[in-house]
């Protein structure tokens, strides 16, 4: 499978381990990624003018003939919103009047859609099952919004399904769809932290060993910011936050370096230990037989 890859700005900075693990997993799954040439920022949640936001997305989409894949939920939502708005011929005409390459239509996919497709088609994709691991699937806000994307915006199940495919156990996690507050963290720290910390507490209460995220901004809020929030709210969370690609990589038997796991703020060691213990037990059992 060959796809156009839209990394998004964060992949080159605070989301580096997402990009590293994305490339490793895609390579292991036989997905060929062709990075969109000279791509630009999607505008994220900060370009208030709708037409400009659509124009920014359209420039990226017009630069490839292939289906476009991205791992960032914000980029995914923005690209998808643009595709919806560009169905309006008036909008399309205006936007095309500015673009160098004409936008004619595009297919946008989220990384997890692609991973699911390949794993479902493969006979023995998962070689090192994540059995025994309880994971809180964190959707965040924009993975499923606006409507019509990868799954229902109200009661999605795609991440749970993926976790089960990987052998892990998804926990019931009430705030899985609540926004992490990331987009306003820089300017409205108090509000964003308040929102993010509730999500961490809820994930902790659900009995998960780790949280799985699909967006670098969610990761930033829940992982990089976790220690600061623990201090601020005076409560211990200590919950590893892993990218979907890091968990998938572990299940595919990839090494921790290939998955950029040294870059996570909250140490993923407990997760690795638990997996090792479970695998060790399995092997012992095997020996007895």
């Amino acid at each position: 499978m060959k796809l156009a890859y839209y990394p998004g700005c964060v992949a080159r900075a605070t989301g580096k381990e997402y990009e590293i693990s994305t490339r490793s997993v895609c390579s292991a799954l036989g997905i060929e990624l062709e990075e969109i040439d000279d791509w630009n920022c999607c505008g994220a949640t900060h370009v208030s003018n709708e037409l400009v936001a659509v124009g920014l997305a359209a420039r990226n989409l017009a630069r490839t003939e292939l289906p476009v894949m991205t791992g960032c939920s914000i980029c995914y939502s923005k690209l998808r919103s643009a595709v919806l708005r560009l169905e309006d011929n008036g909008v399309k005409r205006k936007v095309n009047s500015v673009l160098e390459r004409e936008y004619t239509g595009a297919e946008v996919k989220h990384l997890i859609e692609v991973i699911m497709e390949v794993l479902e088609g493969a006979d023995d994709g998962v070689i090192a099952s994540l059995e025994g691991l309880k994971v809180a699937p964190y959707y965040g806000c924009l993975l499923t919004r606006p409507c019509g994307g990868i799954d229902s915006p109200e009661n999605p199940a795609v991440l749970e399904k993926l976790l089960r495919t990987l052998g892990a156990e998804p926990v019931d996690f009430r705030l899985k769809m609540k926004c992490c507050g990331g987009p306003i963290f820089m300017t409205e720290e108090a509000a964003a932290s308040d929102t993010a910390f509730k999500i961490l507490e809820c994930a902790k209460e659900s009995g998960a060993d780790a949280i799985m995220v699909v967006c670098p901004l969610c990761h930033l809020m829940l992982d990089a910011n976790q220690h600061a929030m623990e201090k601020k709210f005076g409560a211990e969370i200590d919950l590893p936050v892993l990218y979907v690609t890091q968990l998938t990589g572990l299940a595919l038997g990839l090494g921790v370096e290939e998955l950029g796991m040294g870059m996570n703020s909250v140490s993923p060691a407990p997760v690795l230990e638990k997996l090792e213990a479970a695998r060790g037990a399995e092997e012992e059992e095997g020996e007895v037989c």
Partner: peptide
Amino acid sequence: IWLCTSCLACTV
């Protein structure tokens, strides 16, 4: 206005 996280829950 500035506390909106652009999460689109309202819009959906």
